[in-house]
């Protein structure tokens, strides 16, 4: 098939380094991958085209880049599936990380964050007489995360990293989960308290927007966002609840569990720790005022759904820790 490959290029040694688009026409077999196309262009048309690749089998994790705007491994992407009506495909370097040249990006920030989560087992307490025992089940569960090949596709498409380079990001957080979910890590019960404490701080697990970009981008089914959600659950269960993220999820669950629906007025207030958080209350004031003057303030008195006792029964059964005696009441003072 005859295809057009539009490539975003960048040469740091140019007089005025600036990225630009270049198009290549190339003929390939129908079953070719995007990487086949790039290699053919480099070998036959333009030896200056720079990219990383090695195994060509989705194992080494070298060739993550943006194909039609979304991160993927070039070697795992069949050209025929990504061509538009004009038989063209758009290839750019991975996002978020700084471009070195053409399709090659600087992975230093990526590795810094992997290192920051201390990616090695840290058992606490006395060593067992024999070996550390981990159940088959727990290791099977971890195999989903250990499938990570560190290609950076998830980092490329992360919506938080796009605006905030300090966020630990999907790859490092999924890696952290690989250890918090390992029964050998942490205390005797397998709870990695230190890690969960640190991960609950700003730039950690609560900064994720749950946008699912990383889940889509990951070529190995690691589903980093799902691991971040599991980390949140672990952190809350380990008692790290004095932060807006944990308060937000608890207040949300309480509101829905007690009334059936979301109390939109109380949620932001409870998330920041109640009305005694004067700074937060003041920062809400202009937004609240604008909502009020445009006739879109949520009702002050939050109503219960009909037969709400059916919802509360489920609440009591499935979330007994949150189900408190203040049933039915939704007050900023409570």
């Amino acid at each position: 098939m005859d295809v057009t490959v539009k490539i975003k290029r960048f040469d740091p040694e140019a007089d005025h380094p600036e990225s630009y688009w270049q198009e290549y026409a190339v003929a390939l077999p129908d079953n070719a991958t995007v990487l086949d196309a790039l290699i053919k262009i480099r070998e036959e048309q333009d030896g200056t085209l720079t990219l990383r690749c090695s195994c060509r089998s989705a194992i080494c994790g070298s060739c993550a880049m943006r194909i039609n705007g979304h991160a993927a491994l070039a070697c795992k992407t069949a050209l025929s599936r990504v061509l538009d009506g004009d038989n063209a495909v758009v290839v750019e370097p991975a996002g978020v990380m700084p471009v070195v040249k053409d399709l090659t990006v600087n992975f230093d920030p990526f590795w810094d964050k992997i290192r920051a989560v201390e990616p090695y087992l840290q058992p606490q307490g006395a060593e067992p007489a024999g070996e550390y025992i981990a159940s088959n089940e727990s290791m099977l569960h971890l195999s989903g995360v250990t499938a990570c090949i560190m290609c950076g596709a998830c980092v490329s498409d992360c919506t938080v990293l796009e605006v905030d380079p300090t966020f630990l990001g999907p790859a490092a957080l999924a890696k952290a989960y690989r250890f918090t979910a390992d029964p050998r890590d942490g205390n005797r019960e397998g709870v990695s308290r230190e890690r969960l404490h640190q991960l609950s701080e700003p730039t950690g697990i609560w900064d994720c927007t749950r946008c699912n970009e990383c889940v889509e981008a990951c070529p190995k089914g690691v589903a980093p966002m799902d691991r971040i959600m599991a980390l949140r659950e672990q952190a809350v269960n380990a008692g790290f609840t004095r932060n807006n993220g944990a308060r937000h999820t608890s207040a949300f669950t309480e509101s829905v569990g007690h009334s059936g629906r979301l109390d939109e007025l109380m949620l932001p207030i409870k998330s920041v720790g109640g009305i005694t958080n004067v700074g937060a209350m003041l920062s809400y004031a202009p937004v609240g005022w604008r909502a009020l003057t445009h006739g879109k303030m949520p009702p002050l008195r939050h109503k219960n759904v009909e037969n709400v006792e059916n919802v509360r029964r489920l609440f009591r059964k499935l979330e007994p820790d949150l189900y408190g005696p203040e049933i039915g009441k939704s007050s900023p003072f409570g």
Binding site: R210, M229, R232, E233, V236, H248, T249, S250, F252, T253, V256, G257, G260, R261, L262, V305, E306, N307, V308, V311, L314, F315, L318, E319
Partner: peptide, 20 residues
């Protein structure tokens, strides 16, 4: 008397409750 879906927020703490 429909109830909230959980908006993904409840699910991060207790998926079973949200899904129910």
């Amino acid at each position: 008397a429909w109830t909230c879906t959980g908006a993904g927020v409840m699910q991060e703490k207790n998926q079973l409750f949200g899904d129910t």
